[in-house]
């Protein structure tokens, strides 16, 4: 165990050191200008201290971000408009709803494409084209259009998230449902299995590893989708709203705290899916 953890810790420590170096370097000019205007001539150590504790740094130091994360999660009630837990929950609920919708749509699409030959040629190009449209350009259109129809809040954001998520699931699932080889399909035919039996007993179990790979990509995409969907309409809550507000007021520490919160959220969700995958794989006889 320790042998596998030590290199990871070493690399992490190296990255943190690099970050501190970067923070000193990037914030140096701002601090130097301020000090010069005030007529002060701080020593080297004092300069370093100031660059790492600036209120609006170009690049906040890690401890500043951790401090802001702690302040905005642990010290505030979750009902507070400034609580990051509150904002993370707003984004998470949209991401999860979108993930559910995208998964259902992606799986249904894959099942249809695998069973109806004509759909592969007629539908697949549109599916691929749909993902070539940048979501940043599409999100405002969808949010505004749905807003005009009286739909606001959770659902429009979930739709954007679903739009990003269904694609990796559909692609993975099509490949997975086609994974059984000719011999396995012949075998089912010798038993006169119905198409439904071939699906439930052969194609679906064979597709699960591919489905999980798609789910993990889709989960991360859903969080991105929910955050992007919070940007255009100037949403009042959500990690996207925090990013937007932070950039309006030059609150770089707040922006970084929201970014880190989003990363933690995604990583946790993808980690949970990975655990579910291992559980399923063990039940399905995967080699330990």
């Amino acid at each position: 165990m320790s042998r596998s953890i030590l290199p990871v810790l070493t690399i992490c420590a190296g990255l943190v050191l690099l970050w501190y170096g970067g923070a000193i370097w990037m914030n140096w000019q701002v601090v130097a200008d301020t000090q010069a205007r005030a007529g002060a001539t701080p020593g080297l150590m004092e300069m370093v201290r100031l660059t790492l504790n600036h209120a609006r740094p170009l690049l906040p130091a890690p401890h500043q971000i951790l401090d802001e994360l702690w302040r905005s999660t642990a010290t505030l009630p979750v009902t507070s408009r400034r609580s990051l837990v509150h904002h993370a929950w707003v984004t998470l609920s949209a991401a999860l709803l979108g993930f559910g919708m995208g998964t259902a749509f992606g799986v249904l699409l894959a099942v249809a494409v695998v069973h109806i030959r004509a759909l592969e040629r007629s539908l697949m190009p549109w599916i691929v084209a749909s993902q070539a449209v940048p979501v940043l350009a599409l999100a405002p259109i969808v949010i505004v259009a749905l807003g005009a129809m009286g739909l606001e809040g959770l659902l429009p954001k979930a739709i954007i998230a679903a739009y990003l998520c269904f694609f990796p699931i559909a692609i993975g699932m099509v490949k997975g449902l086609r994974a059984p080889d000719a011999t396995a399909r012949d075998l089912m035919r010798t038993w006169s299995a119905t198409q439904a039996q071939v699906f439930w007993k052969l194609r679906l179990p064979a597709s699960l590893p591919f489905l999980f790979a798609g789910l993990k990509v889709a989960m991360a995409a859903a969080v991105v989708g929910a955050i992007v969907a919070e940007l255009p309409a100037g949403a009042q809550a959500g990690l996207g709203a925090r990013l937007l507000a932070g950039s309006y007021f030059g609150q770089t520490i707040q922006i970084w705290a929201a970014l880190v919160a989003a990363a933690i959220l995604s990583a946790t969700l993808v980690g949970l899916l990975g655990a579910a995958e291992r559980l399923v794989a063990r039940r399905m006889g995967a080699r330990a």
């Binding site: 012949d186 010798t190 006889g285």
Partner: peptide
């Protein structure tokens, strides 16, 4: 279902 068929590959489903 008059016959049973054995292929060259065992073709056992790995998850069963």
């Amino acid at each position: 279902r008059d016959y049973g068929y054995v292929f060259q590959a065992p073709a056992l489903l790995p998850w069963r």
